[in-house]
Measured scan of single mutants.
Amino acid sequence: TGEEYIAVGDFTAQQVGDLTFKKGEILLVIEKKPDGWWIAKDAKGNEGLVPRTYLEPYS
């Protein structure tokens, strides 16, 4: 389980392990790392690192 967040901007993977997403996408945050990069999963089940500055809590 995780917390749902909504993307407030588009993000394109910079390196292997990053997750590309579009503004408005709902992501499930699995782990919040202290460096500001969180592990998240998208609706298709893809998992990767995302920058927390692009996310806001979804309710």
Rank of each mutant, 00 (worst) to 15 (best):
T20D: 07
P34A: 15
T1D: 14
W37S: 06
G36T: 04
N46E: 11
R52Y: 14
E3Y: 10
K32P: 03
V16T: 14
W37M: 10
I39T: 08
P57H: 07
Q14V: 13
I39W: 15
G48F: 03
G36D: 08
D18L: 15
D10H: 07
I6A: 04
E56D: 07
V29G: 01
Q15C: 09
E47P: 05
E47T: 14
I30L: 14
L49T: 13
G9I: 14
D18I: 15
A43C: 08
L28N: 07
T20R: 04
L28V: 11
K41V: 12
F21L: 05
N46V: 09
G24I: 01
K44M: 14
L27P: 00
L28K: 08
T1H: 12
W37Y: 09
E47L: 15
G48A: 02
A43E: 10
E56N: 07
E3V: 11
T20G: 11
K32S: 04
K32T: 05
T53L: 11
F21G: 02
Y5S: 01
A7C: 07
K22F: 10
Q15T: 14
E47H: 11
W38Q: 01
L49Y: 14
D18Q: 15
K44G: 10
L49Q: 11
A40S: 03
L28G: 03
V8E: 03
D18P: 04
P34R: 06
W38T: 01
Q15G: 13
T20S: 15
A7W: 01
G24A: 04
E56S: 13
L55Q: 00
D42K: 05
Q15H: 12
G24L: 03
D10V: 03
E47I: 12
D35N: 12
F11M: 04
S59R: 13
V29K: 01
E47F: 14
G45R: 04
Y54K: 12
R52T: 08
G17S: 08
K22H: 11
E3D: 08
E4K: 15
T1E: 14
V50A: 09
G2W: 10
T1M: 13
E25F: 05
L19N: 01
L49S: 13
K44S: 13
K44V: 10
L55I: 12
P51G: 05
G36L: 07
W38L: 03
G48E: 00
L19C: 02
T20N: 08
S59F: 10
D42H: 03
K41D: 02
G9R: 14
T53S: 13
G17R: 06
D35Q: 05
V8N: 09
E3W: 14
L28R: 10
F11N: 03
I6D: 01
W37E: 04
I26Y: 05
L19W: 02
G17L: 04
Y5A: 02
A7I: 02
D10C: 06
G36N: 07
G36P: 04
I26D: 01
Q14R: 15
K22M: 08
E4V: 14
T20Y: 04
I39R: 14
V16F: 13
E3G: 09
Y58A: 09
E47G: 06
S59K: 15
D18A: 15
D35L: 06
G2T: 10
L55R: 00
V50T: 03
G9T: 14
Q14P: 06
G45Y: 04
P57D: 04
L28M: 12
G45A: 05
T53I: 13
D10M: 04
R52C: 11
K22C: 06
E25I: 03
P51A: 07
T12H: 13
K33T: 10
I39G: 03
A40Q: 00
T12D: 13
F21Y: 03
I26F: 05
E3S: 12
G48I: 02
L27H: 00
L49G: 07
Y58P: 04
Q15M: 12
G36R: 04
L27V: 07
Q14C: 14
T12A: 08
K32W: 05
G48C: 02
G2L: 13
V8C: 08
L27T: 01
I39C: 06
A7D: 00
L19T: 01
A13N: 04
T1R: 06
F21W: 02
Y58W: 14
G24Y: 06
